[in-house]
Amino acid sequence: MHAVDTRGEILDVAARLYADLGYSAVSMRDLAGEVGVTQANLYHHFRSKDDLIRETLAHVFAQKTAPMVELLEGAGTSSQRLTAFVNWFVRLLVEDRVFFRLLVRELVDGDGARLKALADSVLERPFRLVSSLADPQRSENQRFLTAVSIISLMLGHVQLAALLPYLSGGRPEHADPSIIARHVTVVLQRAFHNVAGEK
């Protein structure tokens, strides 16, 4: 196995274990055993557990956000790009358990230095592109908050999906990514239309 393959395999296994068990529950020894390498080999690739966690997050988030950038920079109107982004991002949240759990874990438990590194290295550009979907006549602050609302709406729906069948009026299909995406798109398009109508 080549060193590059070993490093990639370590990152993939670490992502799965961290997503399922959390950072503190996975020791370097556990990870080495799962990958089939020695602890010395892990430390050859990563200086410390903190270094491994940071690089694992960057690896997963960079892989997953690359298609997002392509969608948001693609052809079409802002409305078409918003619809494509919502469909893609909701499906990613629902279908990629590792990405979703790592994202939620970082939002809940991530330390400031790790969140800053992740924002600087991976998330700044996609976030800026989501922000660009908002009305260019709005202030930078309003566009920023609109991007937060767009992402929060999707993330909130997916986070609550397991609870919805137990609430009055909730149905299992409310967790279906196509239903979530369609609903979120309609809500956002109405909001954008109302904002445009206010001017």
Rank of each mutant, 00 (worst) to 15 (best):
E55W: 07
L57F: 10
L57V: 03
A58H: 14
A58T: 12
H59D: 04
H59K: 02
H59Y: 11
V60F: 03
F61A: 02
A62V: 00
A62C: 01
A62S: 06
Q63A: 14
P67W: 12
M68W: 10
V69L: 07
E70N: 09
L71T: 06
L71I: 14
L71F: 03
E73R: 09
G74V: 02
G74H: 02
A75M: 02
A75R: 13
G76H: 03
G76Y: 04
G76N: 02
S78R: 07
S78T: 04
S78K: 03
S79M: 13
Q80L: 05
L82E: 07
A84L: 06
A84G: 10
A84M: 03
F85V: 00
V86N: 00
N87C: 05
N87Q: 13
N87H: 11
N87T: 09
N87P: 00
W88T: 12
W88C: 06
F89Y: 11
F89R: 04
V90H: 06
V90M: 07
V90F: 06
V90S: 05
R91A: 08
R91G: 05
L92G: 00
V94H: 09
E95Q: 08
E95M: 04
R97W: 11
R97M: 08
R97I: 11
V98H: 11
F99D: 03
F100Q: 08
R101A: 14
R101W: 07
R101L: 11
R101E: 14
R101I: 04
R101N: 12
L103G: 11
V104H: 15
V104L: 15
R105S: 15
R105I: 06
R105E: 14
E106S: 09
L107F: 14
D109H: 13
D109T: 08
D109Y: 13
G110Y: 06
D111V: 01
G112C: 05
A113W: 05
L115V: 06
L115E: 06
L118T: 01
A119L: 14
A119R: 14
D120T: 11
D120V: 09
D120G: 05
S121Y: 04
S121Q: 14
L123C: 07
L123Q: 09
E124Q: 15
R125T: 11
P126D: 11
P126C: 07
R128N: 09
R128V: 10
L129W: 08
V130I: 09
V130Y: 02
S132P: 02
S132C: 02
L133T: 01
L133D: 00
L133M: 03
L133N: 00
P136M: 10
P136V: 08
S139P: 11
S139W: 12
E140D: 13
E140G: 09
N141D: 13
